[in-house]
Amino acid sequence: MADPLLLDLVKTAKSYGINVGFLTSPHERDIWLEGFRTTLTLVATMIPVSLAAGMALAAALTARQRWLALPARVFVELTRNTPTLVQLSCAFLGLNMLISQSLGGAGQNPFGAFFWVVLVVGLHGAAYHAEALRAGIEAVPDTTLEAARALGFNRLEILRWVELPLALRIALPTIVNNLVTLVKLTTVGSAVAVGEITYASIMIWTQRDNVVELMVVILVFFSAINLVVSQIGLWLERRLAVPGLGVRS
């Protein structure tokens, strides 16, 4: 049933003392491959969620209205100052359960573990993005803002066309840093049985004695994702670089 080529590979690896025998089990192999896919899906959804929420939070933090700035500040402090794992447990085991109950059973609840991981970890990243962007927004000189107001820009138009574009350039290195951390934080999904790569690996290595082999794969996998993330960040920095603005000119 198994591919002869695969059997060969497993045998050769074994002769070098590397145990990848689980690859011959279609069930375990599927769990493992699904783990890669799930991690990549988590990364691909979490990054845009964190960026969008981060911009909204930064806008709220720098708003002149207290009813916007204060809740945003409270949210940022709560999110930054408490363990993500505990937040996730509270959201999934607490909030999600309450939603299930009020909707009349878990079967009616549209939200699953995957949703809660994206939401909690995504907003965690957003809190960090928001602080980085706030620093950028506050670095925009008052004279530049006055010029925009004199041209008839309203508060939101100033944010969209002047403050955010300038803040993004200032905050980009920090934001990329945050994204690298965010990629690694997808592994907390294993705590609520989201089948990402660490969860899948744990499932496999508890049945077989191949912890080291799978660990190495996990490390290489995350290194590769983050290499791509940081390279995209550097490319964006160069793309957005403007003569006479910032360090690079």
Binding site: E146, P165, G244
Partner: peptide, 16 residues
């Protein structure tokens, strides 16, 4: 303000 132009001492162009 949209009907009134303003030119500043320090130019205040949008640097980006």
């Amino acid at each position: 303000r949209k009907r009134i132009g303003f030119v500043f001492q320090q130019f205040n162009l949008f640097p980006h």
